[in-house]
Computed example of a mutant assay.
Amino acid sequence: MTTLHVRVPATTANLGSGFDCVGMALDFHDELEMELLQSSHALAIEVEGQGAGTVPTDETHLVVSSLLRGLQEWGGERPGMRLRCHNRIPHSRGLGSSASAIVAGLAFAWGISRPGEALDRAELTRVSSFMEGHPDNAGAAVWGGAILGWFDGDDVDLVQLEVPAVIGTLVWVPQFEVGTAGARSVLPEVVPRRDAVAQAIAAAALPLALERRHDLLLAATADRLHQSYRADLMRPSFDLMTALREAGVPATISGAGPTVIAFGTAEQLTAGDAVASDGFERHALALGSGVELTVS
């Protein structure tokens, strides 16, 4: 009996100005294992931790449906499967749980379709990005660290940013959820030119700020395209982010929210200690590594 093991990180997207194109993996992971069974099409799913008792336990489970998509992409045959999920990544909190599930399922599919071959991360990035809708969370989950990614026709271009270890994150996770679809539905189709220009300036500075000019992080994480439009969906989160930024902390809404995240040096993040965050669970996290697949 073959067992495949996958470890996949939580991710954060946008980082303020990098809307739908900048993502970062966090040192906070889901662990999954899959036994390949002789009985064809057999399926059993066990979930512990986040999502236990609420996520489906049939072929619509996102890890399984992604695995089946990967088998179609890479010509693998469907085996019988017993999937065990040990979930730590909160769901519907803006920490990339959906992208991580998609990447995990595709990693399993690669292990089944291409036994003995190392993960083709470019191929995983391509398929997961189109499944997820954009490459920020998906690319970060595949590669780890911080990435800049965009679509180029049927391909995905991706640049890994060289973020030094001095950059850490603080994450404030609330108890309430916000669905990504709902958060996207409130975004306008057209924004004022002055906002578009300001966003372009901040987004252009963001990779530089992450890699070398950490003093630019507060300005480079400023956003005018999405966070303010979503404020009423997550008022406690928006107010916390605003208070942190007023204290000089480079804070943003993580992905579609409602988690709040800040990036910076220890000195930059320390200013957040004086900001009240009742109702949020705070974590200090380093950047995470990309998806890992092992076989036993």
Rank of each mutant, 00 (worst) to 15 (best):
A196I: 14
V166W: 09
L161P: 04
F151I: 05
P188I: 09
A101D: 09
A141G: 05
G182N: 12
W143L: 12
P164C: 02
W172N: 04
P192R: 09
R121Y: 06
F108K: 06
E123N: 00
A141V: 07
D157V: 14
S65E: 03
V166P: 05
V103G: 07
I89L: 02
V190L: 13
G179Y: 04
S100E: 00
I112L: 06
E162N: 15
E77G: 11
A198I: 08
V171C: 14
I147D: 05
V159N: 13
F151E: 07
S65C: 02
S92A: 15
E162H: 14
R114W: 10
R126F: 08
S100T: 02
V186M: 03
C85S: 13
P79E: 11
I89A: 00
A146S: 10
V163C: 03
S129K: 05
T60V: 05
D154I: 12
W172S: 06
S185F: 01
R126M: 09
H91R: 15
G168P: 00
V156H: 01
L148W: 13
A107F: 12
W150T: 14
W110M: 03
V178H: 01
P188Y: 07
W110T: 08
H91A: 13
V163H: 03
S113P: 08
R84G: 11
M81T: 02
Q175Y: 07
V142N: 06
V171D: 02
R114H: 15
G145R: 01
V142Y: 03
G75T: 02
R82T: 09
W150A: 15
D152Q: 14
T60Q: 12
A118R: 13
S185K: 10
E117H: 07
E117I: 03
T60E: 13
G94R: 11
L161Y: 06
A118Q: 14
E132L: 12
T57E: 14
S92V: 13
L95W: 07
G144Y: 01
R88Y: 04
G133W: 02
G116E: 06
D195S: 15
V190M: 10
R126K: 14
E177G: 00
A181K: 15
E132N: 06
D136Q: 04
A198H: 09
V171I: 14
R114I: 05
R126C: 08
R69H: 12
G70A: 10
S129F: 05
E162W: 09
V156S: 02
H86T: 11
G168W: 00
A146H: 01
T57I: 13
E73L: 05
A118Y: 10
V163G: 02
